[in-house]
Amino acid sequence: MKSLKSEDFKVSETIKLSEISTFINVETSEKKKEKQLQKIREKLSKVQDKMYAHNKYSVLICLQGMDTAGKDSLIREVFKEFNARGVVVNSFKTPSSNELEHDYLWRHYIALPEKGKFSVFNRTHYENVLITKVHPNYIMNENIPEIENIEDITEEFWENRFESINAFEKHIATNGIIIMKFFLHLSKEEQRQRLLRRLEKEKHNWKFSPDDLKERLLWDDYQNCYEEILNKTSKEHAPWFIVPADNKETARYIVAKTMLDELNKYEFHYPELDQEVKDNIKMYHDKLSSEK
């Protein structure tokens, strides 16, 4: 299998999405990809266990991508071996009335992982500079001071949001949250094929919405917004990784491998036993053994 490293996909300089391929040939069969993914899943589960015991860090995984990019199935397959108590998946949909009574980052802040645990954001705080930028009328629901109509939403408004998001991520990274952000880079043609499959296979019909076609008409707008997001918010403490997503199995492997590469940069360890406990391990063992 072709050797891949997290650095191969990391956004570390200005990028143009149109110049980045949505497909990568990893030079192996689907069956071998699944075997490699299984090995990585097992390694990740061991890292998770050690990180939980270490109790100093937590992990935030952010997933973004166009509709049908494969976020849901990726979560299911990549996190299959994790201890269920150690990972929480949050899917951020249209803000509720309660969420709209707070600032736009509030609902994301309260969903951050506890020490030793993972949180997966399926769609993230970046929707606030993506969906709202493509559909600026949504901003009016937030009831923001000095924003009385769409014309009040200036470029300075968006720059302030980018600054706030960068500051938010810097703050949580400083306090022990390891951030990895993945953009599942899907081609327009592959999305068309996946939408067709939703219509052709009855068991997938429920996934289709006529709104999918309306949003598809705004493809270029979304691509421009994503490009801006990737260029303005990929930081060393909160990097973006662009994952070719036209092949779902390859995308899952890349995300899992990147997570493992990045987490291996940290020195998680099991806590040291108290010296008194250490000195008396044999005694405790003998006591339990004698209870037979």
Rank of each mutant, 00 (worst) to 15 (best):
W106S: 04
A84Q: 09
I131E: 06
A238L: 09
L105K: 11
L74D: 02
Q48R: 04
N55L: 09
S290G: 11
T258S: 09
Y138C: 07
G176K: 10
K133V: 06
K282T: 15
E42I: 13
K282D: 11
E77F: 01
I40K: 00
E156N: 08
R85P: 02
V129T: 02
E236Q: 15
K248V: 05
D211N: 14
N280L: 08
V134T: 06
T132D: 00
E114F: 14
L260M: 12
M51D: 00
K265C: 03
K214R: 15
K292L: 13
E81A: 10
I110Q: 12
Q223F: 06
E77I: 13
Y138A: 09
I281T: 13
T28A: 04
S3R: 14
T258K: 03
A167Y: 12
S21H: 11
E190S: 08
S73F: 13
A256I: 07
Y284F: 12
K16Q: 11
D49F: 08
R41W: 07
K32G: 02
H285F: 14
K31Q: 09
I131V: 15
E142P: 03
N122R: 04
I153R: 04
F168D: 02
E127V: 10
K115S: 13
I177V: 15
Q64F: 00
E189C: 07
I242Q: 04
I15L: 03
L260C: 14
S119Y: 07
E27S: 06
N205W: 12
V47F: 09
K5G: 02
C225M: 10
K232N: 00
E146P: 03
F268Y: 11
S6F: 03
V243I: 15
F79K: 10
K257G: 01
A69H: 10
S119H: 06
L112V: 14
P95V: 14
P244A: 13
S164D: 09
E236S: 15
R216N: 09
Q191V: 03
L186S: 01
T154E: 08
H171P: 01
M283N: 09
M180A: 15
W158C: 12
R194E: 01
I24V: 10
D72T: 12
K235D: 11
N280A: 08
